[in-house]
Design a protein around this nucleic acid. Structure first.
Lengths: 186, 186
DNA sequence: AACCCTATCTTTCCACTGGCAATTTCAGGC
DNA sequence: GCCTGAAATTGCCAGTGGAAAGATAGGGTT
């Protein structure tokens, strides 16, 4: 909100938001660093100081994404089906983050800002799968099955492949769908 | 296999294969048209004659992908669970095609070479869902549920998110997982 | 108050990219 | 043999990501 002089004062956040906006509109690679810098009113190399390079900016997006994501599914409660719904809700509400997070070739997945958050999220999913699984030996399989269902629905929805369902609230659809596939487990 | 003179003779196919190779290695946008042309031994504008522009090349990849894909799931038989396995097998064996097909912002999804093949594939999936669904009124939901599970597993596998399962044959894993989620339907 | 230290941002430069326009080569039908 | 159109070429342009080096602000230190 401040008037910028030579020093912007908030460039990191502004660039991140600009990137998220651009990603939502044109996909994770459909924009240029220079364009973002222009909109932020700074020179085209200013962002380098905060992110290093374009990959660094995407790494920051992924890191923030995994943080938000872990929080979102963590606060979904005990019922693993609601975790799945929260998964889909996150993908829809934070589509830019989501579209970067699961394309590791776009960023540096081993970055110390990314890996911990990702592992935290993976742990939450694994715990949920364990609680859902009738057979402890198949906990991992159950986790991956439910994860796949939520993830696949989110991807298909975001890609527009489910255009015929565009009218319906994706969360409601996701809940029905998870119930259909995993409701028989208890 | 012919020696190239001024006219390459097979440029279209060679460029497609080069693109598929590049996509497998660096993702659907991690390469340049010029680099591909260089490897094919032609000038950097030669591909334009066959594909128009870069988007045109990706459109051709998507079109070929949907053709192959429709064939693959069509020949998987009646059992819808085997269709899911074929879905995953296709994604693994043709990962470059797959990674383009479901990112419509990368190509021209309304291209006449793409849309028919995509619709054909969608029809096969819908028919499978219908045969799987106990309740005809919920056929669409069942289709989307099974589609999501297969798609999500394929995406997670390709992205490396299931690194812990890297040892296991993805087809076998997919079969178990589909059985877990949809085996109770008959 | 003068100093310097560091983070931040600018200017300048380079190789590379996608795409357009004009031109050249070549192959096969007449 | 020639002529026509498909297939490639060269040359050009604006835009891109990134490196290098300089400029500026805004403290802390003394």
């Amino acid at each position: 909100m401040e008037q910028h002089g030579y020093h912007h004062g908030n460039l990191r956040r502004v660039m991140l938001d600009a990137a998220l906006h651009a990603i939502s509109e044109s996909g994770p690679t459909g924009w240029s660093l220079r364009e973002l810098a222009r909109r932020a009113g700074v020179s085209h190399t200013a962002p380098a100081h905060h992110f290093g390079d374009k990959t660094g900016l995407l790494t920051a997006v992924a890191a923030e994404g995994f943080e938000l994501f872990a929080g979102a599914i963590e606060s979904a409660g005990e019922d693993f089906r609601e975790v799945g719904v929260a998964y889909v809700r996150f993908a829809v509400q934070h589509r830019a983050h989501f579209q970067v997070m699961f394309r590791p070739e776009l960023y540096r997945p081993d970055d110390p800002a990314v890996a911990p958050a990702r592992n935290r999220a993976a742990g939450i999913l694994a715990a949920g799968g364990q609680s859902l699984s009738p057979d402890p030996a198949r906990a991992r399989l159950t986790t991956v099955a439910a994860w796949s269902t939520a993830h696949g629905f989110a991807e298909l929805w975001l890609s527009g492949a489910l255009a015929d369902a565009a009218e319906i609230d994706p969360e409601v659809y996701a809940r029905d769908l998870i119930e259909l596939a995993f409701g028989h487990l208890r």
